[in-house]
Design a protein around this nucleic acid. Structure first.
Lengths: 128, 128
DNA sequence: CTTGACCTTCCGGTAGCTGGAAGGACCATC
DNA sequence: GATGGTCCTTCCAGCTACCGGAAGGTCAAG
């Protein structure tokens, strides 16, 4: 399979697939003309990566997950730990965003949003 | 005031303050020895920027907010629109993260997390 | 006069790609 | 076999919002 077929099948941009090869997440073969030649296993890995990325795992986490996926002797505890740490980061990120959200909602609600210069949002930013 | 004083007062790293000058968010004076010389107005702007950044506004949004802040003839509607658009982005981001969070929570809950290789997390990543 | 704490600029790196240029390859058609 | 359009390749630059560190100037104290 050529890269555009793989892109279509996995939903990943060709650029991203090349990038994943560059950072050694996948190692597709090469055809005689220099074109990348993807095996079914490469496509599987890419789909795996796409889903892991969609769950917000970093590239390095993805690398570890892929290694665990390929290791028949893995302990599910290792996978779980990775996932739990990532989940904790997501929790934290959500908490941060919610705090911003709440503050902003307040400010937006109090702002007249008309043609006059007086603005509680700017007042808050200016004076803390 | 020198940069380290300003850093202490605003809570921003000196590196960040220099960066903000580089991208023309602030224009501190220069002392004869080449040191940056910050006026009170510079410190105010930096504090403003720090709070806007803490609310998640992008640098370009901060630039616009600062311009509005300085424009005595602004319309609060312009500020409000900026804030509302940003708020919408935050809402979206939170929704995305919550979706990841939910999926991950499910998977983590179902994973034994022991020494055996069988793992629902990897199964999900592998098969969608 | 030296020491140490400042300050300066410049360069490189981070994450995870994306866009674009320059050039080769392939396929169908005339 | 020339042409055109669509693939493919590599390489280079840029995005966000900085951070780290090196090399070197400045300043105040002892």
């Amino acid at each position: 399979m050529n890269i555009s077929d793989v892109a279509r099948e996995t939903g990943l941009p060709a650029k991203t697939i090349r990038y994943y090869e560059e950072i050694n997440l996948i190692k597709p073969l090469r055809d005689t003309n220099g074109y990348r030649l993807f095996r079914v296993s490469d496509v599987h890995k890419l789909a795996f990566l796409g889903r892991a990325r969609a769950l917000g795992f970093s590239i390095e986490d993805c690398r570890r997950l892929l290694a665990l996926y390929e290791d028949q002797d893995r302990a599910s505890a290792d996978v779980k730990q990775l996932a739990e740490e990532h989940l904790a980061q997501i929790d934290e990120k959500i908490a941060q965003l919610r705090s911003m959200q709440e503050t902003l909602r307040h400010l937006v609600r109090e702002c007249a949003g008309d043609s006059r210069p007086d603005c509680p949002i700017l007042r808050d930013l200016a004076n803390g």
